[in-house]
Amino acid sequence: MFTMSRRPVNPSRRLVDSGNVSFGASLESKTRSSPLLSIGLVILGAILLFAYSYSSGLQHIFDLIIQLYRTRGIDVSSKFEGGASCTLELQQALPILKKAYGDSMRSVLHVGPDTCSVVSKLLKEEDTEAWGVEPYDIDEVDDHCRKLVKKGIVRVADIKFPLPYRAKSFSLVMVSDALDYLSPRYLNKTLPELARVASEGLVIFTGYPGQHRAKVAELSKFGRPAKLRSSSWWIRYFVQTSLEENEAATKKFEQASAKRSYKPACQVFHLKAYP
């Protein structure tokens, strides 16, 4: 049976989901007391006016935070604008993955958007070689990313077709924010292809159902909106594709995560490569 890094339960969500009826009852009781309701509306109006007055300043602070992260090579736009980015999540989890996989991270292929950032981080690790596949057209990239593409370290390739690598070219293949946009028809080709080029294992970061949707601006790039699947769906699919869970890596990843109090915002699957 597969295990995975589970998303922590959000207490506030549980309260909202279980409190719909009581919220309605509370609203009804408040309408019976017009003085209290009037006072509440006045206070609410004052708060809204205060927030509106400072909205431009808050937006300026927000923009500065985004700019600071980008100057450090981290793309946080999707995390703030449309939900959790599993590529950003993977970057944050790299020290934990290093603990879990050890020598298996000596030769890594990352497949997913913003792969230049992931590859750059991996190349800073001692005794680690890294390559990347960007599944979508690269429009605006920095000079460092252009150099990685020019050297052939990062390639732009449609993952619906065979990858330009020999079998077992990499000890570990990492995937993020890529499989969620493929229909089962293309998954049947892409997932075995990812396993083909791995010699020791695969790590797959996928979104949770209901977590986020592709923004309208992304639809032309991805071709279709993300279809986020449940863990049970993925587990059945892995079994159908003859991919087995890497139980040893899963256990080490969970232990390292617990020590660092790390709770992934995405589903994380650890799989063995094909024999």
Rank of each mutant, 00 (worst) to 15 (best):
residue 225 P to I: 00
residue 234 W to V: 06
residue 191 L to Q: 02
residue 201 G to A: 03
residue 255 Q to P: 07
residue 202 L to F: 02
residue 238 F to Q: 03
residue 222 F to R: 11
residue 176 S to A: 15
residue 180 D to P: 02
residue 198 A to C: 11
residue 252 K to H: 12
residue 209 P to R: 01
residue 215 K to P: 10
residue 255 Q to T: 11
residue 232 S to I: 01
residue 239 V to D: 13
residue 205 F to W: 11
residue 214 A to I: 00
residue 248 A to D: 15
residue 262 Y to W: 08
residue 243 L to H: 03
residue 244 E to K: 09
residue 188 N to A: 12
residue 224 R to E: 03
residue 185 R to I: 14
residue 186 Y to K: 05
residue 200 E to H: 14
residue 182 L to S: 05
residue 192 P to F: 07
residue 245 E to Q: 13
residue 227 K to L: 09
residue 250 T to V: 07
residue 203 V to D: 05
residue 217 A to Y: 15
residue 203 V to W: 00
residue 233 W to H: 09
residue 255 Q to W: 06
residue 220 S to F: 10
residue 243 L to T: 06
residue 208 Y to T: 11
residue 261 S to W: 07
residue 249 A to Y: 05
residue 177 D to P: 05
residue 190 T to L: 01
residue 185 R to T: 15
residue 216 V to S: 11
residue 200 E to F: 06
residue 257 S to L: 03
residue 220 S to Q: 09
residue 255 Q to S: 10
residue 221 K to E: 06
residue 212 H to N: 13
residue 208 Y to L: 11
residue 229 R to N: 10
residue 218 E to D: 11
residue 195 A to R: 13
residue 241 T to V: 04
residue 179 L to R: 02
residue 193 E to Y: 15
residue 232 S to T: 07
residue 222 F to P: 12
residue 236 R to G: 07
residue 216 V to N: 08
residue 174 M to R: 05
